[in-house]
Simulated assay, not measured.
Amino acid sequence: MPEIAFIMGKSASGKDKIYKNLIEDESLKLNTVILYTTRPMRAGETDGVEYFFVNDETAVKMQESGRIVELREYNTVYGVWKYFTADDGQIDLNSGNRYLVIGTLEAYDKFCEFYGKQHIMPIYIEVEDGLRLTRAIHREQKQDNPHYEEMCRRFLADSEDFSEENIAKAGITRRFSNNGELEDCISEVKSAILGGMYGY
């Protein structure tokens, strides 16, 4: 039975809201996994809550010792920032605990390589592209300083990252549609988690 539920989907698919709802549902008994980052801590953040904040030297040492499950690098105006999941004891497949992780398709592949595919339940959230673009635009319009160019870049990048070829290659066969009411999608995901991870 899989111990890790892994949520993924293109931008504006609603995966963040679904993730938050699943974590807050006590009946699912899902544990969160705190990521690491080399970016500076922002005002109001606490080490070990939003992220574990480490310097680049620590990240390199963890990578060299084989303790990094998956890692992403982003070139920013402040330099390269790394975000990664570490094998630091937060996930213990022998503990009887269940975990919820949110990430990219590439990160999902890395988790499968590290922990074994039999321990991961993929939850791919799918939204029709036209609807997803409309939702993305509406979301961006609410920002104080909308970044439509970045929104478009992400939209196009997701089409490549989550191509049908890549989805098939990852062995993902089930999809959870979020084209309608969010609550319906959440309900379907919860049923799948209870059935797949707890045998209900």
Rank of each mutant, 00 (worst) to 15 (best):
L30I: 02
M62V: 00
A12D: 07
E64A: 08
Y74H: 15
I7P: 05
S163W: 06
N145G: 09
G14N: 03
V54P: 07
A5N: 03
R67S: 05
I172V: 13
N94E: 15
E128C: 07
G195Y: 12
V54K: 11
I123V: 11
V49M: 10
L133A: 15
W81C: 12
G79L: 07
E183G: 00
G199K: 02
T76S: 14
R154N: 09
M8C: 09
N75Y: 08
E150V: 09
V127H: 02
E126N: 08
L35F: 08
Y74W: 10
F6D: 01
L22T: 05
Y83C: 15
D158G: 13
S177R: 14
T134F: 12
E149D: 11
R174K: 15
V69T: 00
D25F: 01
F84N: 15
G199A: 08
G196R: 05
A86N: 09
M151V: 07
E160M: 12
S191F: 03
C152I: 10
E73W: 01
L35K: 12
F114R: 10
Q63M: 10
D158H: 12
A107K: 04
C185N: 03
M62S: 00
S159I: 06
N31W: 00
I4E: 11
G116M: 09
V33F: 04
N166C: 09
V54L: 14
S27R: 10
Y198H: 07
V101R: 06
M41F: 02
S187A: 12
D129T: 03
A12S: 13
H147V: 03
G79Y: 08
K20N: 13
I193T: 04
E64R: 07
G48R: 02
I68Y: 01
L105N: 01
Y148W: 08
V33R: 01
L35Y: 02
G195A: 12
I167V: 11
V77W: 10
I102N: 15
I23L: 15
Y108V: 04
P122K: 00
K190L: 11
Y108C: 10
E70W: 04
N94V: 06
V54H: 05
S27G: 10
T173M: 13
E150T: 08
F162V: 04
N179T: 08
L194Y: 06
Y78K: 15
M151K: 06
I34Q: 01
Y200S: 13
L156G: 05
